[in-house]
Design a binder for these strands. Sequence first.
RNA 1: GGGGAGAUACCAGAGCGGUCAAAUGGGGCAGACUGUAAAUCUGUUGGCACAGCCUUCGAAGGUUCGAAUCCUCCUCUCCCCA
Length: 376
Amino acid sequence: MDFTITHRDPASPARAGRLYTDHGTVDTPAFMAVGTAGAVKALHVRDLRESVGSQIMLSNTYHLFLRPGVDIISRAGGLHHFNGWDKPILTDSGGYQIYSLADMRKFTDDGVVFQSHIDGSKHYFTPERAIDIQRALGADIIMAFDECTPYPCDYDYAKKSMNRTHKWLKRCMDHFAQTECQHGYTQALFPIVQGSIYPDLRKESAEYISGMNAFGNAIGGLSVGEPARMMYDMTRDVCAILPDLKPRYLMGVGTPANILESIALGVDMFDCVMPTRNGRNGMLFTSRGIINIKNEKWKDDFSPLDPVGTVFADLQYTKAFLRHLFVAKEMLAAMIATIHNLGFYIWMMREAREQIIQGTFTDWKEKMIKQFMQRR
RNA sequence: GGGGAGAUACCAGAGCGGUCAAAUGGGGCAGACUGUAAAUCUGUUGGCACAGCCUUCGAAGGUUCGAAUCCUCCUCUCCCCA
């Protein structure tokens, strides 16, 4: 695996690069579509690849562990073989579920007991186990087992949690070094910076994480409800410390504006459920702003979804028809919205990359963000 | 022809003398959603000069301090028997 920065924006820390994996190349800045259970909801891998143009997708250790189970995926030859996506995959470690399933978990001395959201059964995750599972799943990039703190989070807890994440990281790194991918290709482990919204904790965490000398590094614990300003401040502080030549991954971000601002701070990789989930709920990200396609005002708007969109569905379907599909609760509504939104996100990343290469990123970014501020 | 049941807000359907502008579903409208417990959740859904007032429960009369709820009559619907 390799990562090269090919261009730098003259007016900001933004950079364009290439991430090389055994399953192909990822141009950065990159957005990863979220396929929690091994599938991007409402989308075929063929459309993810050919229509949307994704180069990498994300899946979740916790969900795949519960269903269908690690053994099945391992016997299938790894997640790539199981779900038919032969390009790069990143798996989250289950750390986020410690946060989102907060009322169904219990910390012990060296791990976390989870209660399954599916059937209530109890399962024990440790850093070592999270690595073992991700070795068996076989994603190209795997994540350290961390705790994502909520917002707001008091200082003492943030510090305690950060220290626990650091201890877990050490165990993840050690266990990672002692094990191998089960499917014959290279995997990289990304550690995760925590520290909530406290600059000194973020600094401490970023320094600790940098010292682990991993292939790439992630920033976690943001976009959990804090003001965007805070998120940018934390991201800026952390990026200033993380190794310049290694990929930086801002986990769970975000809105188009969040992503563009974070690219400008030197982030290379993103993932977010927003284009898929919000799409299924009727929110469309278009080149002319954000729209709620379920609103009555679109009922007789026979213009294409996005006249300058890059996905076939953008010209194939009208706003009025897609609104009708949502109102009628047709499955096709979710499919069209998903392919459109992901197409938009991927287009935006390609364009951002191109603007960095051309040296015009900063001006372009400002113009784009103004467009996203407007709701139509 | 005989016997019975019923008409309530956009729809279905509770309510059966005051705490009813009227439960609950559905539908409509709007909002939320950031490493997915989410094809989900929340709000709202008679009018207005909106902590109050006005007009509503098939129509018209009546009883009562007070009626969607009781009585009379009218109109319409459905069911059973022949």
